[in-house]
Design a protein around this nucleic acid. Sequence first.
DNA 1: CTGAAAGCGCTTACAG
DNA 2: CTGAAAGCGCTTACAG
Lengths: 343, 343
Amino acid sequence: MREPTIYDVAKKAGVSPSTVSRALHGKDRVSADTRSKVFQASEQLGFTASKEASRLRSGKTGRIALIVGNRMSGWYSSELAEGVYSALSNEGYDLLFYRVADRKQRADFFSSMPIKRNTDAVIISSFALTENEGQSLRDVGVPIVGVNTMHLNDRYSMASIGVDEISALKNLIHRLCVMGHTRIAFIQTTPINKDFVWDADQRIEGYRQGIRAAGITHRKDYEIPVPHSSEAGSIAVSAILALDPQPTAICCISDEIAISLVHELRRYGVRVPDDISVVGFDDREMAAPLGISTIRHRPDEYGKTAGLMAVRLARGETLDRSRIVAPASLILRDTIGPARHIN
Amino acid sequence: MREPTIYDVAKKAGVSPSTVSRALHGKDRVSADTRSKVFQASEQLGFTASKEASRLRSGKTGRIALIVGNRMSGWYSSELAEGVYSALSNEGYDLLFYRVADRKQRADFFSSMPIKRNTDAVIISSFALTENEGQSLRDVGVPIVGVNTMHLNDRYSMASIGVDEISALKNLIHRLCVMGHTRIAFIQTTPINKDFVWDADQRIEGYRQGIRAAGITHRKDYEIPVPHSSEAGSIAVSAILALDPQPTAICCISDEIAISLVHELRRYGVRVPDDISVVGFDDREMAAPLGISTIRHRPDEYGKTAGLMAVRLARGETLDRSRIVAPASLILRDTIGPARHIN
DNA sequence: CTGAAAGCGCTTACAG
DNA sequence: CTGAAAGCGCTTACAG
């Protein structure tokens, strides 16, 4: 059985297809009487407009693309996607998801530009565009919204939102200093992909600035790199125990690292926070039950905002604020305490 | 500057639009010479076909819908979406994501049926359809693929894939018995939404069958419900410590619960696994670094399979196997050991 | 192997 | 407020 078209509705309601279209869209002037006849007919036939046809005619695709630089199932990407999705589905837009997780996917994406002609706006998350990429993205001719790309992509994007990770880290370092810590280390994961400049690279920058601002000596060996693996925690512990003098506080680039670090430290008999304080980043769902202190940011929330900005821009509206800083807050839980030597 | 159309390519290549279409699609018989002229012209103009136009004409939407019953950012949903996405993007399909996380969203979805006319296939995950819902989904007239809906939706779906959670749990119980455990408890979360019949509800069923098969007395008070919250671990510990006799092994409905349970047990001075063994379910990323024993399944992998099945069905092809059982395997890590009393 | 023609189902100026 | 007409950009039988 063929799906009913706008012509079927028109016939049933005794009006022209143009009128059906206008009535259903609601914005045009249609008499209340006609409108209700149309709605009724549409209802009875179970009419749903073909998106293809309306988009072809109107020149709008009804889609907004989200481009992320890693697996969509990671905590960050999936929270972000959730937020973007909420905003878009409220506004009647489809979410078109693109993942460019490695050099090859990235090259393919930017050379074939699958979003071209197929999206009304683009949201790009977390990694810095090269000159060429930014240019070809602009050439698509749709608004670009950056998420957590800091000022990296400001040349290309019309709007952006992101966490000020530098300030967040600086605040954390300050707080640790107030608690008497002067030997503060930072654990970072070696980038999954060196071709990408990530916004999260800002975290170590924030750490350094915080150390400097506090007037503490910056020690290169206090910046500890660990691989992306389930061994990260134990590798970090070995590295930490080898340090002289021992740090009394450790900032981690993510909760994931912080969680396994705390676990391994305790296995080694190191007390947390009595001997060493540990702080993560993200406040992902496992942080609270495990008592992990952390810096909270909410990709789902600023994803929503990013989605909304993209929708507005796609509709040709203007934004009152186009560069937004999303909040990040320090969450103190069990793994943080005063430095041992001043106890 | 207007985007080039197929007419522009045709003119440049000196052929008709029909020929351009055929050449670009590759399946029709076009002379090698013509084909290369067309490709060259297309390349030079930076032509990308409008999806709207081709879909409108061909009657295919190029989209496949994934309907999940919870937040897309949860571990399960996002892993699944990642897998489905991989398969679809390989095959040139867009992923249309729908979330029906509560009663209202669910009612809205099934009454307005936004996928109608807008998708070539539907993948439905994790929850059981009602009679009415199944019927209206079928009325859309596109193939339906079930993921982890066990036999719940078999009446409606043309194909399905899912983990046999019952067998997985039964195996686990058997394994624990071999290790001398006879007092085995099960911790389950109270359903987020009681309107939904979840596939994960099968896990407790598997636990019961396993207990029965092992010839152990089934104790109702060994089935411990905890809420969905960061307190779940400590609530579970209180409940466990109040039991008499104490269980020597605890199966958890998820790794999330297992992780916080182990954490809380250790805080209470209960040794894991010496005093109590703990096993989770999922093998999500934090399980390995924390040494959590668990049952592994891979939503990203069977999501890929589900996506592929949906694509095939959307194209009108037939499947060699339409009901597939995805593997689940027991992963033994630090939190499992022999029962204390036989040490 | 290639082209001319029709049409997918809408929306939107243009008249009235 | 409403209708007739044109057209968005493709694809696909139909001829040749």
